[in-house]
């Protein structure tokens, strides 16, 4: 018989947090697995949906920004320029949307069982990762079609994905915790995501932003992620605006830390108010 001892006291939740995450890793795995299973069982077109969304958005952007507005593409095929940005953007948008809503969607579990609550918005990201993987295969196909060969920079993509993860999780944690208390956040998120799609350089290259505004523009952490993805995927003579990129990274990490902290702080009253 083990001599495991649990002490319950007010304000003790944050301590031993990492240890607990390790202890509950199986739950994380199973919840992620559930979300993936459900996602592809429930929707009739399933995987087709994950293909159609980025492709159709890309087509529209290519026509609107590339053909009609005739924005510059920095030498790369415009479709590829857009798709390289769609990849992290879709991942970000899906993660933020899903994780923001995740606590409310799992209210039943939160009010009946104990586990580190942060698992729930985090698993929401795993589903987006599957979509990301599918879109990534599409990207490879697109690169083949345009005859764009990846260079060494391509290897930095995993790191950039991690950056996209922590940026979206930070916002996801923050909003999921807030929306337990303020339910009208569910109306804010879709608007925010849609708004973000147009202010982030998804349909156009961030080089169209006037030089003196670029640093300000990079306050949006997704600017750095998207620029990074383009820089790594398009290869060749694509340039990266380093001060902005570093600023975006900093803001992404800051958001993540703040999101985790806010989440852990409000976690202890979730079951009381959910």
């Amino acid at each position: 018989m083990s001599t495991k001892q649990t002490i319950i006291q007010p304000g003790r939740t944050a301590r031993g947090f990492l240890l607990e995450l390790v202890e509950y890793r199986d739950l994380f795995f199973f919840l992620a697995w559930r979300d993936i299973l459900v996602r592809y069982k429930q929707t009739v077109i399933g995987i087709a949906w994950s293909v159609l969304r980025p492709v159709l958005t890309m087509v529209v952007f290519v026509i609107v920004f590339g053909k009609i507005a005739k924005l510059p593409s920095d030498g790369a095929p415009y479709a590829l320029l857009v798709f390289a940005a769609m990849l992290p953007w879709q991942f970000f948008a899906n993660t933020v949307t899903e994780s923001s809503n995740s606590l409310i969607a799992n209210a039943q579990m939160v009010s009946k069982v104990y586990f580190p609550r942060i698992i729930i918005p985090t698993t929401a990201m795993v589903v987006s990762l599957v979509d990301f993987a599918i879109a990534f295969v599409l990207l490879l196909g697109l690169m083949l079609w345009y005859g764009v060969w990846p260079d060494v920079r391509f290897l930095i993509l995993p790191l950039l994905l991690v950056l996209a993860m922590i940026t979206s999780l930070g916002i996801g944690y923050l909003i999921s915790a807030l929306s337990v208390k303020y339910r009208d956040f569910r109306y804010v998120v879709p608007f925010m995501v849609q708004f973000g799609l147009y202010v982030s350089p998804v349909g156009f290259s961030s080089s169209v932003i006037p030089e003196q505004w670029r640093l300000v523009y990079s306050l949006n952490p997704m600017v750095g992620v998207i620029d990074g993805f383009r820089w790594a995927i398009l290869g060749g003579d694509t340039l990266i605006y380093w001060p902005g990129f570093l600023l975006s990274i900093g803001i992404g990490i800051g958001l993540f830390l703040y999101g985790v902290r806010y989440f852990l702080r409000s976690e202890r009253v979730f079951a009381d108010v959910i």
Binding site: M1, S2, T3, K4, Q5, T6, I7, I8, Q9, P10, G11, T13, L31, R34, N106, Q108, M109, V110, S111, K112, V113, Y114, R268, V269, A271, D272
Partner: peptide, 27 residues
């Protein structure tokens, strides 16, 4: 006792592996 909500004050010490079943079929 199931650690779902936090007490306002006081202390609980539990010795051993705890399982709580406030509902069947959670999740």
């Amino acid at each position: 006792l199931s650690r779902i909500v936090e007490p306002t004050s006081g202390k609980i010490t539990l010795k051993g592996r705890v399982s709580s079943l406030l509902e069947v079929g959670t999740g």
